[in-house]
Deep mutational scan, measured.
Amino acid sequence: GKMTGIVKWFNADKGFAFITPDDGSKDVFVHFSAIQNDGYKSLDEGQKVSFTIESGAKGPAAGNVTSL
C-alpha cells in the first residue's frame, strides 16, 4: 500500500535519496528512476512524498514516489 514520509536527503550527483517514513519505520532507499515527476527527477530535503515499498536487489526500496 501507499505510505507517506519526508525526504531525509537527496544526492543529485548519484541520483538517489532516502525517505523517513511517517510510521517510524527505518529510512527507505529511493533511486531516481522511482520518482514520478515529469521532467527532471529530483527531491528536496524535507519534502513530503507518498511511495510504495518494492523489494529490490539490495533490499527494500521506494517505488512510485510522488510529491504531496
Rank of each mutant, 00 (worst) to 15 (best):
F10V: 15
Q36Y: 11
N37G: 09
T20I: 09
F51V: 03
G56H: 11
K8G: 02
G24N: 05
V28M: 10
F18L: 11
A17K: 00
G5R: 00
G46A: 02
F32P: 02
V30I: 12
T20N: 02
V49F: 02
I35R: 00
A61Y: 14
G59E: 15
P21W: 03
D27W: 05
P60T: 05
S42D: 11
K58Q: 15
K26D: 09
V28W: 05
T66H: 14
V28T: 04
A34T: 10
S33Y: 07
F32D: 02
S33Q: 07
A12L: 11
F51W: 13
A61F: 13
T52V: 11
K8H: 08
D22C: 13
S42Q: 13
K26T: 06
F32E: 06
I19N: 00
K58T: 15
L43C: 10
A17C: 11
K26V: 10
S25Y: 03
S42N: 10
T20G: 04
D23A: 02
G46Y: 04
F10L: 13
K26R: 09
T52Y: 06
Q36I: 12
D13C: 15
V7R: 00
F32C: 14
S25G: 13
T66Q: 11
D13F: 06
T66M: 03
V30M: 10
N11I: 05
S42P: 11
F18D: 01
N37I: 10
I6C: 08
S33I: 07
F32I: 11
F32M: 09
F32H: 07
M3I: 09
L68H: 13
S33R: 05
I35S: 03
K41A: 10
A12Q: 11
T20P: 00
H31R: 10
G56E: 15
K14Q: 04
D27E: 08
G59P: 14
N11K: 04
Q36V: 11
T20D: 01
G39A: 09
F32L: 12
D13N: 05
I19A: 00
F10A: 14
Q36M: 12
Q47G: 05
G24A: 02
S55F: 05
E45N: 11
A12D: 05
F32A: 06
N64Y: 05
S55M: 12
E54Q: 03
T4A: 04
S67R: 01
F16L: 15
D27T: 07
S42A: 11
A61R: 03
V65H: 12
F29Q: 09
V49D: 00
A17R: 00
D44E: 11
D22Y: 03
A17W: 05
F18V: 13
K41R: 08
N64I: 12
M3F: 07
D22A: 06
S33G: 11
H31N: 14
A17H: 00
A62D: 14
G56Q: 09
K8S: 06
G24C: 10
K2T: 13
W9Q: 03
D22F: 04
T66S: 10
G24H: 04
N37Y: 13
S33N: 12
P21A: 03
G46F: 04
S67I: 15
I53D: 04
S50D: 06
V30Y: 06
G24Y: 02
N64G: 07
I19V: 09
H31M: 14
E45P: 09
F18A: 10
W9D: 02
P60F: 02
A57Y: 14
K26Q: 09
V28I: 13
P60L: 03
I35F: 13
V7S: 00
S50R: 06
T52G: 04
V65C: 15
G5L: 01
M3A: 06
K8T: 05
L68P: 15
S50T: 12
D27G: 06
S33C: 15
S25Q: 05
D23N: 06
A12M: 10
F18I: 14
N11H: 06
H31Q: 14
F10C: 14
T20A: 10
G24E: 03
F51M: 02
A34Q: 12
I6W: 06
N37R: 05
T66Y: 00
G5D: 01
I53R: 05
D38L: 09
K2E: 11
F32K: 05
T20Q: 09
F32Q: 06
F16V: 14
M3Q: 08
G1K: 10
S50K: 06
G59C: 15
D44M: 12
D38A: 10
G59H: 11
V30N: 00
A12N: 12
F10S: 14
I6F: 07
A12T: 08
F29R: 08
Q36R: 07
D13M: 06
A62V: 11
K41Q: 11
G15P: 01
F10R: 04
S25P: 02
K58N: 15
K2W: 13
T66E: 14
F51R: 00
G15H: 12
V49E: 00
F29N: 02
N11Y: 05
G63F: 03
T20C: 11
N11D: 10
D38I: 09
G1N: 09
S25T: 07
P21D: 01
S25C: 06
V28K: 04
A34S: 13
Q47N: 05
A57W: 11
A17Y: 07
T52R: 05
H31W: 14
G39I: 08
G59M: 06
F51S: 00
I53A: 06
T20H: 07
K2S: 11
P21C: 05
K26P: 08
G24R: 02
P21R: 01
S33E: 11
W9N: 04
G63L: 09
V49L: 02
G1A: 10
A62M: 08
A61S: 12
L68M: 09
F51H: 00
D38N: 07
P21E: 01
D44Q: 13
M3V: 09
L68Y: 02
G1W: 08
T4G: 03
D38R: 03
T20S: 10
G1L: 08
E54F: 01
I19H: 00
G63Q: 11
V65W: 01
G56V: 11
K48D: 02
K41D: 11
G5K: 00
T20E: 08
K58V: 15
I6K: 06
S50A: 12
G5S: 02
N11W: 07
F10T: 15
T4D: 04
E54I: 03
V7K: 00
K41N: 12
D27K: 03
F32W: 10
A12I: 13
D27L: 05
K8A: 06
F10M: 12
A57L: 14
M3T: 06
D38W: 07
W9K: 05
D13H: 06
F29K: 12
E54H: 02
I6P: 01
A57K: 10
K14G: 04
T4W: 08
D38T: 07
A34I: 07
P21I: 05
G59R: 10
G39F: 10
G56S: 08
A62R: 03
V65Q: 12
P60Q: 05
T20L: 05
A61H: 11
G63E: 13
T52K: 07
G5I: 01
N11A: 06
G46K: 02
A62P: 12
I6S: 05
N64Q: 10
T52P: 04
V49A: 01
I19Q: 00
D23H: 03
V49N: 00
I35M: 06
G56I: 13
F32R: 04
H31C: 15
D38G: 09
N37D: 12
D23T: 04
D44A: 13
G39P: 11
S25K: 04
G15Y: 06
S67N: 09
A12E: 09
E54M: 01
S25V: 02
A12K: 12
G5H: 00
S33H: 12
E45L: 14
S55T: 07
T4Q: 06
A57S: 14
F16P: 00
S67V: 12
D27N: 08
K8I: 11
D38Y: 07
T66F: 00
K26Y: 05
A12S: 08
G59D: 14
G46Q: 02
Y40M: 09
K58M: 15
V28S: 02
N37A: 11
G24V: 01
S42G: 09
G63N: 11
D44V: 13
D44I: 14
F16H: 08
S55Y: 05
A57P: 15
D44K: 13
A57V: 14
I53V: 08
A12C: 15
I6G: 01
K14M: 05
D22K: 01
K2N: 11
A62Y: 08
I53F: 10
S33L: 08
G15K: 13
S55C: 15
S50C: 14
V28C: 13
A61N: 12
D22T: 06
V28Y: 05
Y40L: 13
D38S: 11
E45S: 09
D22G: 03
T20F: 03
K48A: 10
M3S: 05
A12H: 11
V49W: 01
S50Q: 10
D13S: 09
T20V: 08
E54V: 02
P60D: 14
F18H: 07
V65E: 14
A17N: 00
W9G: 03
D23K: 03
I19F: 00
A17P: 00
G15F: 07
G46M: 03
Q36A: 12
Q47K: 07
K2V: 13
K48N: 06
A12V: 12
F18Y: 12
T52A: 09
W9I: 04
P21Y: 04
L68F: 01
D22M: 07
F29L: 15
S55P: 11
S33F: 06
P60R: 00
T4R: 03
G39C: 14
W9H: 06
G59N: 13
A57D: 15
N37W: 14
G46C: 09
M3R: 05
G39S: 09
S67D: 14
K41P: 11
